[in-house]
């Protein structure tokens, strides 16, 4: 319980400090910009592993990580993937709306935060490049891990290549149009 007491609402100075350059970079580039004020031991992270486990089950059992299902989706031959993503977005949107509407807090009593994404041309150029790779490998970053778990160990090479692609993006970032 002492952990919970350490949490405090951000002051005006802290909010100002949070709008510094590093924050902007992180807001633009990674999805997780929320800084928890809590310091927890490592095993508190196991709850995320539990959520991931259910996700991994659904990934394989609903064949979301199947190369064949992705080909069907991009050839408009099956409703399956559209149904999954559509249901996910509708439920996710209702959840986010409820969380905002009723100011739902985390299980540790922290305020749940949302940050508006800024448009840049990377979403067009990078999005298209990502789509090309998605249809080729039949996997986006999440399913890459699930495909490896399902026994396709050669996808480990694809994963390393994806990490290399991320690194090359980071290296040339300043020179790319955004």
């Amino acid at each position: 319980m002492s952990n919970v007491k350490e949490f405090h609402s951000p002051s005006a100075e802290e909010i100002a400090a949070a709008t510094n350059a590093e924050f902007d970079t992180r807001l633009l580039d990674t999805m997780c910009v929320n800084e928890s004020q809590l310091k927890h031991p490592w095993w508190y992270n196991l709850k995320y592993a539990a959520v991931g486990l259910v996700f991994g089950l659904a990934f394989v059992k609903a064949e979301i990580v199947s190369w064949f299902r992705i080909q069907e989706m991009f050839r408009l031959q099956s409703f399956h993937m559209y149904g999954i993503i559509g249901t996910g977005v509708v439920l996710g949107a209702i959840s986010v709306w409820l969380i905002k509407r009723y100011k739902v807090k985390t299980i540790y009593g922290e305020q749940i935060e949302f940050h508006n994404k800024k448009f840049n041309r990377g979403q067009i150029f990078g999005g298209t490049i990502f789509g090309l790779g998605w249809a080729m490998t039949g996997a986006c970053p999440g399913p890459l891990f699930a495909q490896i778990g399902s026994g396709a160990f050669v996808i480990g090479v694809t994963l390393l290549s994806a990490i290399a692609g991320t690194w090359v993006y980071g290296y040339f970032r300043e020179r790319l149009p955004h």
Partner: peptide, 19 residues
């Protein structure tokens, strides 16, 4: 496997996220 993976990694970061 290799080019496909590279495009996924490069593109998703360039776009600021994936699916």
């Amino acid at each position: 496997l290799v080019l496909g993976g590279f495009l996924v990694g490069f593109g998703s970061r360039y776009a600021g996220g994936c699916t």
